[in-house]
Structure formats: C-alpha cells, structure tokens
Amino acid sequence: MSMGVRYTRGFLLDLKRRLTFVRDAHELLEMKRDQLVRELTEAIEKFKEMRKKLEKEVEELHRELAMVHATYGSQEILSSSGLLKESLELEVIPKSIMGVDVPEVKIKKIPKPEETYPPHIFKLARMASATIRDLIKLAELEAFIERIAEDFRKTNVRVNALEKVVIPSYEALIKRISDIIDQSSLEEFMRIKMVKKTLAKRRAI
C-alpha cells in the first residue's frame, strides 16, 4: 500500500476514517456476497430441475420424431419442414440484479405449428416448439448463473482482499503511527519535564 505515510495525528485521523470506510465497504460486500450466494443457490436448484425436465422433454421429442419418421418416412418429414413461414423472434434485455447485468430473454414471436403442419407432424412440431421455449428459458438461466457466479467470484476476491490484506495493513499502519506518535509525545513530555527540572535547578542556584 503506497500512500505516503506521515507520522502525524492528522494522518492518523485520516487513516482511521479510511479504515471505517473500508470496514463499511467490507460489510456491504459481505452482504452482497451472501445475497449472490442465495441467488446462485436458488438458480442452480432451478437449473437442475429445468435441465432434468428438458432432458426428459428432449428424450420424448426424439422418440416421437423417431416414431413419426419411421412410420411416414423421410419424405414426409423433409417435405413438411419447409412449411414454417414465420421465424422465432427473440429480444434480449439486460436486467440488473445486485448490480450485475443479466440477460432477460423475451420471446416476441413464436410460430404456431397448428396453422402450418400436417396433422401427423403437428404433435411433433408442438413438442419441438415447447422444447425450444424451455431451451430458451434454460439458456437464460444458464447465462444468469454464469454472470452471477462471475460476480460472486469477483466479490469474494474483494471481500477476502479487504479482510486479509487491506484492513489488517490499515490496522497495522494505524498501530505503528499511533505507537510512533505516542512515543514521540512521551519523549516530548520527558524533554519538557527535564527542561523544567533544569530551569528549576538554575533558579535555585
């Protein structure tokens, strides 16, 4: 820490003020870290649940696709695949959580399979559409977890740095300056006492 140490009372007071500020910041960062942990734990739980559900959905979708494909042949699947005229439209809006920018995905337009596909493909298309929706939600949650985790890592580094380096070094510096100031005050006191004694002796003579 380079801060041009001066062994004066003014500097000591300034240092003590700074230490209070750093301690407050540490407390706040600790609170932020705890909140981020809570958010992260909740999000991870939700993510696990969603992923499990999605894996099941994808499995069912694949099974349905295989069954439809096997029953009707590739021609039916391929000829129907181009029928979708509309495309999926998404909007990604940044949202701030504890000062962390996380993406929020809004589905602006999702094609309606019931208006497009032949009936035997329709169920498959509807399942695929639902899976895509869930995939988008999962991607959003994954991005949320990534950003929060990254911010948690940074906050943790800061909290640790304050707790293990900055605050102890401030405290040590304050102690050193106080000791030096105390010592110099004592020396000054002793010097004055000696001077007084000498002056008193001289007057007595």
Binding site: R63, A66, M67, A70, T71, G73, S74
Partner: peptide, 23 residues
C-alpha cells in the same frame, strides 16, 4: 416396403428393439 423403411429408420434413431417391432 413400409416395414423395411421403418426398420431402417428406427435403427438410424437407435430405437430399442421392442419399439421397432411395435412399428
């Protein structure tokens, strides 16, 4: 023709044998 096609496609999708025979 349909049976052979469905067997080929179900092998492609790695469906279990009981699902293949169901088709």
């Amino acid at each position: 023709y349909r049976n052979l096609r469905s067997i080929a496609i179900s092998i492609y999708h790695e469906l279990p044998v009981d699902a293949r025979t169901r088709l």
